[in-house]
């Protein structure tokens, strides 16, 4: 038995052809010169090795970053606290000049204003308690009288003020003539522009003059009992000049005690914790008046002195 040779298929032919080609290419490669000189540069080697080490290197800077972050947070918090405390302290010292009676004030601002009012009341109580008694009694329009001899100024006692008494007081006020204070104004103007906080001699001088004039008027008047003296234009100008020379902490303040058809009754707070009560004729002065609250008739909202406007700029 003899086996017949099988006919080669196309697949076998392809395999044979491929093997022959492989042998041919391998023979060519054996004839090639060695190319060992071709390899990556040392610079590339260093770059790659460096990147490999950096990839697995620990990160020691994290702790430092945490410390820096903590330090910055603390510094920011401390700075904010300091700024807020300074602002609050400054607000306590300088009273707001915004008219709270306007309807445009929001609820939050009203709440803030009410808290400020409370603070002003406390300050005013301190000012009143430290002030010297100027007048015996101060009659208000609604029949309440505040006696400055009383240590406790918050207690008000109603009195029966007759109409005749009020008329007599008005007559007394009208009898007061403005003193010639031009020389005093010139003296104040010639003074050094810097006035120390504790030096309030001009203010004391004005008060002394007022008291002298008031005492003289009181002696000459048959009416007993105190009333507010009339603020003359000369006094107003003197106060204005003084007010420009005072520091921000010692600016003159005033509060409205009462308002009548022809005049305002105000109290001026002097820097040395003294007060002076004046009656301002509506024909001469104009006020930006705060609303008078019923629960604090005696200690009203303080305003800055520049809110007293002289009509016709006489």
């Amino acid at each position: 038995m003899s086996s017949k040779p099988t006919k080669p298929t196309s697949h076998d032919q392809q395999q044979t052809q491929m093997q022959e080609d492989e042998v041919f290419i391998n023979a060519l490669y054996q004839q090639l010169p060695p190319d060992e000189e071709q390899q990556p540069s040392e610079f590339l080697d260093k770059r790659i090795i460096k990147a490999a080490y950096q990839a697995v290197a620990p990160e020691p800077t994290k702790i430092g970053k945490k410390k820096i972050t903590w330090f910055h947070s603390l510094a920011t918090a401390a700075s904010l606290t300091l700024v807020i405390s300074l602002v609050v302290q400054q607000q306590n010292q300088i009273l707001p000049s915004v008219d709270t009676s306007t309807n445009l004030v929001s609820n939050s601002q009203k709440d803030k204003q009410s808290s400020d009012d409370e603070m002003m009341i406390v300050e005013a109580v301190a000012a009143f308690s430290a002030a010297k008694p100027m007048m015996d009694n101060e009659i208000t329009n609604d029949g309440y009288a505040t006696t400055q001899h009383d240590k406790q100024m918050t207690i008000a006692q109603p009195i029966t003020a007759t109409k005749s008494t009020i008329k007599q007081q008005r007559a007394l006020t009208k009898s007061l003539t403005p003193a010639p204070l031009t020389s005093i104004i010139m003296a104040v103007k010639n003074q050094s522009p810097k006035i120390e906080n504790k030096s309030y001699q001009p203010a004391a001088k004005i008060q002394q003059i007022s008291q002298t004039e008031f005492a003289a008027a009181k002696r000459s008047s048959p009416v007993k009992g105190a009333t507010a003296q009339r603020l003359t234009i000369a006094q107003y100008q003197l106060y204005t000049v003084q007010n420009t020379q005072f520091s921000a902490e010692n600016k003159l303040m005033w509060s409205l005690n009462n308002e009548q058809a022809d005049s305002y009754y105000i109290t001026i707070y002097l820097p040395d914790n003294n007060t002076a009560s004046y009656r301002l004729a509506k024909t001469q002065f104009k006020l930006n008046v705060l609303s008078v609250k019923t629960h604090d008739r005696h200690i009203l909202n303080k305003r800055i002195f520049s809110k007293i406007i002289l009509k016709n700029d006489q």
Partner: peptide, 10 residues
């Protein structure tokens, strides 16, 4: 691909 590459190169 290998087979065709060999053929071309040869």
């Amino acid at each position: 691909s290998w087979r065709y590459a060999l053929q071309r190169l040869r």
